[in-house]
């Protein structure tokens, strides 16, 4: 079973985001593997451990993305392809197109994505790639089971879970809860340094959207501490009813 996992590096979730023009300042924080991509990687590695085969990671990003890719290589991924490109201003359509161009020439049974990259919060690239490749796709899966060429997965919707079956090759995007990503062990971190990481430069594709403005969220009016302990409860409920009018 050959799996490809598409991963992106994103600012650490603790990062302080500072606006610069229509984008953000690119320094002052650490980059990490997109958290959802970690679930995608873990699933692909579990498939390999059960069925044999290999796991390849594919990413578009600046050269330094190699740091995050090494992390993926230390938790069971076999090899990686990094398409170096300036991803500033790339929208989800352009990213999907660039990934598709590469995936067309790769061998795979399954492509895993994260549900969403926590920088642009689009949740869009995986589904778009599936359409461009004409493959079945189930997004935001929380369970995954393989039976020969048939994958049975669970997707959560408001108030229900859906069990969906697809025939491989297929695309899945990973939601939190799918599995527990493993931590790299020291020997694996050493081994990861020797695993193949192919880098090639690709030209950015034109985006179909433009960001024209970046702003901080509207500030919330200063709140107040109503009081301490149970004595404050009746005052709080009164405020909720009469001032905020929410109960």
């Amino acid at each position: 079973m050959k799996s490809i996992v598409c991963v992106k590096r994103v600012p650490d979730t603790e990062a302080k985001i500072v606006i610069q023009g229509t984008g953000i300042e690119k320094s002052g924080f650490d980059y990490v593997l997109n958290p959802y991509d970690e679930y995608a990687i873990e699933q692909a590695v579990q498939v390999k451990e059960k069925e044999g085969g290999e796991v390849t990671v594919l990413s578009i990003g600046p050269k330094d993305t190699a740091t995050q890719i090494r992390k993926a290589l230390s938790v069971g991924v076999d090899k990686a392809v990094l398409l170096t490109s300036d991803i500033n201003g790339l929208d989800s359509s352009a990213t999907a197109e660039m990934l598709t161009n590469e995936l067309k020439d790769m061998e795979f049974d399954i492509i895993f994505f994260g549900k969403q990259a926590v920088d642009g919060d689009n949740g869009s690239v995986g589904v778009q790639v599936a359409q461009k490749l004409g493959l079945p796709v189930v997004a935001k899966i929380v369970e995954f089971e393989l039976n020969g060429k048939t994958a049975t997965v669970t997707r959560e919707i408001e108030g229900a879970k859906e069990v969906v079956e697809v025939t491989l090759p297929a695309v899945f995007t990973a939601e939190k809860g799918l599995n527990e990503p493993r931590y790299p062990k020291l020997p694996d971190i050493m081994k990861a340094k020797k695993k193949p990481l192919e880098q090639k430069e690709v030209a950015a594709v034109e985006s179909k959207t433009t960001v024209v403005k970046m702003e901080y969220p509207p500030s919330r009016p200063a709140g107040r501490i109503v009081g301490k302990g149970v004595e404050a409860v009746s005052e709080l409920v009164k405020l909720l009813k009469e001032e905020a009018k929410v109960v």
Binding site: A96, N122, S124, T209
Partner: peptide, 23 residues
């Protein structure tokens, strides 16, 4: 942008070759 709408929008955008913005 429900669980379903979040999956539908990018699919439709890809099929129409159109720009997409979610949520």
């Amino acid at each position: 942008a429900t669980a379903t709408g979040k999956d539908l929008a990018p699919a439709v955008a890809a099929l129409l070759n159109a720009g997409v913005a979610g949520d």
